[in-house]
């Protein structure tokens, strides 16, 4: 079955709609997608708002790093909605700051991996031959590595700073994108419009960026969205092991890591940050999946 299959009834009814608009309409028609987008927006606004407030020298509700040993390990209350940690710091304030870190990590790591993945995949798929062989065999080899452990090793060697973490996550997780882009390029390269562009003597880079890449944008965008929660979960795991963004900067992972010794008495220290990681990741995954469904011409 070809992706161009058109049912007789569909013809004429939706001819003016652009592919992008069609994907968006179908995406928005999915209630799960709408809920996910709302959660992501909430998450992004919280992260952005906290960052902005911090840049202006303000904090809400408290300074995330303000310790108060008189108020340590307090359960959730009206003063401290999500309780306090072992140093008396307000968990909600720390979690709001953690949101900024998680979102930053997710977006930048994906940008890095997308950049590498698209370039490698495009070169391999467009030029083919030996170039393709060398690049794809390297991808095959890299895929064999235990991803999380490889990242942990690299972060441990280079030092756990925010920039190192996002670059390393990006450097290790581009293989899926490269494979996908290569596959798309192999297909689109053989289409008539690309062949005619080549016959007309257009430059390779122009064909790649003007003709092929836009036609592969939907699946690339889907992998990008699905890559964000992967990066968030990876950073949380690193933080938990002590190799994430370093204290005193709060991250969702290190709030849990710091509370290891108090686990049995201070449930709020593990429950809330973990739930935040979980919900944020879930929203991105569901949105990405809904987007994939919406851009799937078959369903």
């Amino acid at each position: 079955m070809s992706t161009l299959a058109i049912t007789p009834g569909a013809l004429g009814a939706v001819t003016q709609e652009t592919p992008g608009a069609r994907i968006l309409r179908r995406f928005w028609g999915n209630p799960i997608a709408r809920i996910s987008v709302v959660i992501i927006l909430f998450f992004a606004l919280t992260a952005g708002g906290t960052a902005l407030l911090g840049a202006l020298g303000h904090h809400w509700p408290y300074d995330p790093n303000l310790t108060n040993l008189d108020q340590k390990l307090l359960p959730p209350s009206l003063q401290h909605w999500l309780g306090t940690d072992n140093l008396g710091r307000d968990v909600l304030s720390r979690m709001l700051n953690g949101a900024t870190i998680s979102l930053t990590v997710g977006l930048i790591a994906v940008a890095v991996s997308l950049g590498i993945g698209v370039i490698v995949g495009a070169i391999a798929g467009y030029f083919g031959g030996l170039t393709d062989q060398i690049l794809m065999r390297s991808v095959d080899a890299l895929i064999c590595f235990p991803t999380f452990f490889l990242i942990l090793t690299a972060v441990a060697i280079l030092g756990p700073s925010l920039i190192n973490i996002v670059v390393i996550i990006g450097l290790v997780s581009w293989t899926g994108t490269a494979r996908l882009v290569r596959g798309e390029f192999l297909t689109i390269r053989e289409t008539e419009f690309v062949k005619s562009a080549r016959v007309l003597g257009q430059k390779d880079w122009k064909i790649i960026f003007r003709h092929i890449l836009p036609n592969a944008s939907a699946p690339i965008f889907v992998t990008a969205v699905l890559g964000i929660p992967d990066a968030i979960l990876t950073e949380a795991g690193l933080s938990f092991l002590g190799f994430g963004v370093q204290p005193p900067q709060a991250t969702w992972g290190n709030i849990i890591a710091d509370s290891k010794t108090y686990l049995l008495e201070a449930w709020w220290l593990i429950l809330f940050p973990g739930f935040a990681i979980f919900i944020a990741s879930l929203a991105f995954y569901l949105a990405g999946d809904a987007l994939r469904e919406a851009s799937n011409s078959r369903s």
Binding site: T7, P8, G9, A10, A13, V14
Partner: peptide, 9 residues
């Protein structure tokens, strides 16, 4: 008939 996005054909 066969259903599609634009109704039943």
């Amino acid at each position: 008939g066969f259903s599609s996005e634009s109704g039943i054909t």
